[in-house]
Amino acid sequence: MKNRLLWPVLALVALLVLNVVVTPSFFSLRLQDGHLYGSVIDILRNGAPTLLIALGMTLVIATRGIDLSVGAVAAIAGAVTCTYIASGGDPWIGMGIALLLCAVLGLWNGFLVSVLGIQPIIATLVLMTAGRGIAMLITEGQIITVDSPTYREVGAGFLVLPIAILISLAVLGLVALVTRRTALGLLIESVGVNPSASRLAGVKSRTIIWTVYVFAAVCAGIAGLMISSNVSAADANSAGLWIEMDAILAVVIGGTSLAGGRYSLTGTLLGALIIQTLTTTVYTVGIAPEITLVFKAIVVIAVCLMQAPIRIRVRQGVPA
């Protein structure tokens, strides 16, 4: 466990140190109108949706799966809520409907994977492609702006800390609690490590797999609400674009293997923080923000290579 988190922790610390060197005031916080501001707060707030989605993704990946559709699901959640509010509905009901719909989409993914036995990467590719279309169908291709203070609170509001941070930390706490206090964590890992042994031990892997896809979709839904609430608008085209990739990266950087099995929520938290801090660092160091991607690529490869056992067999085994 400790070993697995060593590299992510070092990477994060290195990034933070770099930031302090460049901007000595990096860790300073200030309280203004009862709201806490500062670079660290910004990182946390901007990273909140990625963290949320990565949490759901962690459990999916632990069962040897992957969910490519989360970005599209996030866009659908924003689209549904904003369309509902724009037509004069209550924001709370709108958000409720959106999350319910997300749960249904999760059921759909889970059905394809656990019942029909389709490879997760293809099964969720369907919704990844069609999902954006559905979101645009809901918004009729428009960017729908809403003027609802209640809704705005979700992504942009403060309760001393930004509410988005509180929500994602709450979900993190909830997942940690649920997976540790119930047997969900054990059964997820068991299915991911050894599916056939789990079957013989009587584990209902179908239910477990179904559960994690629904959970991932609901997490994506909440993240979608945050993203759209932050700008008080639903943009079906670009909301949550590529967030599934960031989430998968956060999970992988956090030491959970794409091959499934043991997972680490702490690792995922670290992974999400690394990705967000990296973005901020590039900005504070004075490099054009668009180039972040290059650094992201380097970090991914570096972390993966640190964790990957070199395939010795390939070298000394069968001559090529």
Partner: peptide, 26 residues
């Protein structure tokens, strides 16, 4: 291949069948 869940602890392996019978919520 079909017995132990190698990456998990002795405790987890030991209660796996019992836990599976109870379902994840209990």
């Amino acid at each position: 291949a079909e017995g132990v869940v190698a990456d998990l602890t002795v405790r987890d392996n030991l209660i796996l069948a019992m836990q599976a019978a109870r379902g994840w919520a209990r």
